[in-house]
Design a protein around this nucleic acid. Structure first.
Lengths: 236, 236
DNA sequence: TAGATTGTTAATCGATTAACAATC
DNA sequence: TAGATTGTTAATCGATTAACAATC
């Protein structure tokens, strides 16, 4: 699920969402609207599949089909990144991948700290999709001392006390929280104090963070409830 | 992440999103807008916390603070469910919980089929949040015969061949997919053919489903990429 | 009564859509 | 040239916001 919620503008303290874009407005720096930003990763995913298949050029109609948006939305999104296509021809796949990656600020080997080594944390630590997109889980922390020393993915679980040290030495700016709801806020506070600027939160809690810190929330129950709504609606 | 994407109206075949609301429009049945539906679960969560704390009445300003939306949005959302508050007084917590649950079509003990018993599937099977919200994982299936018979949460893993039978006997209409990208579409096809009408997809693939079936996508890489964008934007 | 708070209206804002001129 | 496809404009649509009358 995608949530969203940026503790940037208006003044409401906490962040909330499920990957969907709540609210309007543009980020301060770039000229990309929030909906556009939320769609770019999907384009990147479809482009990677095309590149693997050896496709070098793609039209907005084709790419739109692969990403579930309309061709008009796709062209508008891409044109906001610059003049990437050629009329009558289409878009070059490789150049498009590069342009989107640059627009998203994806840098090679971005370190990410993961807090929580339970089932969910373990799943996240072993998720290969991060590596393919330039992200690397550089540390896994857990409050349970019994887990310290165990492997998760390619890293070894460390005790929670080493949170600040892990953030400092890796210079990570992004963190993933797969911890129980009860400790989520305090973990978030520590992460932010240590220098983290983006949080992906799986705990069913609305985190309160200072301005300048972005929270995206993934709440599994919320997702299922929205799904249940659509399903119930169809029954009527 | 909340994704969204309903294969209802417009015509673009696949669904895409991450819990965020892409697109506009209202569901066919109720008079609830998509953004409203996506916010209701958050209200329910905040209300549950208030109820646990013994609060019986809450104002839109207070509840808004707990959910990260503006009071105006909250009042508008709630008024679309009916006249639930009293001017000068506020909203009764218990009645609000009931009204939102009813609006979301939450019924007691809604069965959900889970496909995939890896780390992520195990985390989902053990997630207690579902039970608290009237959902129950009634079956866990996995293609790996070695996992059959093992416990996940309170149910026993069954071989993938029993997918159709599991859906039929449980009469489930919702399913969660925690399977590899390569098999996601074929699993989705089988689930839909068996009668599933709502899919929560964790595989990084845009599923193509018939109209009348809702897909919500949770793509962890997408979430992190959006987070990276916000973080990079702040650096400029 | 006076203060508080909802429900709703009107205004603003932003995103999507459709259409098409520009251009390969 | 003729066909195809982008980039962009104008129109439509829907959501948010602010303000306030109704009402407890």
């Amino acid at each position: 699920m995608s949530g969203d919620g940026t503790a940037d503008g208006g003044g409401h303290g906490s962040s909330h969402g499920s990957g969907h874009g709540t609210g309007h407005g543009r980020g301060p720096g770039s000229g990309l609207s929030r909906p556009t930003v939320s769609r770019l990763p999907g384009y990147l995913r479809a482009l990677a599949a095309l590149a693997r298949a050896g496709t070098v050029r793609v039209s907005s109609t084709d790419l739109a089909r692969h990403t579930g948006v309309s061709p008009a939305v796709l062209r508008r999104d891409l044109s906001s990144l610059g003049q990437l296509g050629r009329r009558g021809v289409g878009y070059p796949v490789a150049a498009l991948q590069q342009a989107i990656s640059r627009a998203l600020g994806l840098v090679e080997d971005q370190p990410v700290v993961l807090v929580g080594a339970g089932h969910l944390g373990s799943a996240l630590a072993g998720y290969t999709g991060f590596g393919e997109r330039g992200m690397r889980v550089c540390a896994v922390l857990d409050a349970d001392p019994g887990l310290a020393g165990q492997r998760r993915g390619s890293v070894v679980v460390r005790p929670l006390e080493e949170l600040e040290g892990s953030v400092a030495e890796s210079e990570a700016r992004l963190a993933i929280m797969a911890v129980p709801a009860g400790v989520a806020q305090s973990v978030a506070d520590r992460l932010v104090a240590a220098g983290i600027r983006g949080l992906l939160n799986f705990a069913p809690v609305d985190l309160v963070v200072p301005r300048g810190v972005t929270v995206r929330a993934v709440d599994l129950s919320t997702e299922l409830q929205i799904l249940a709504f659509h399903q119930a609606e169809l029954r009527q």
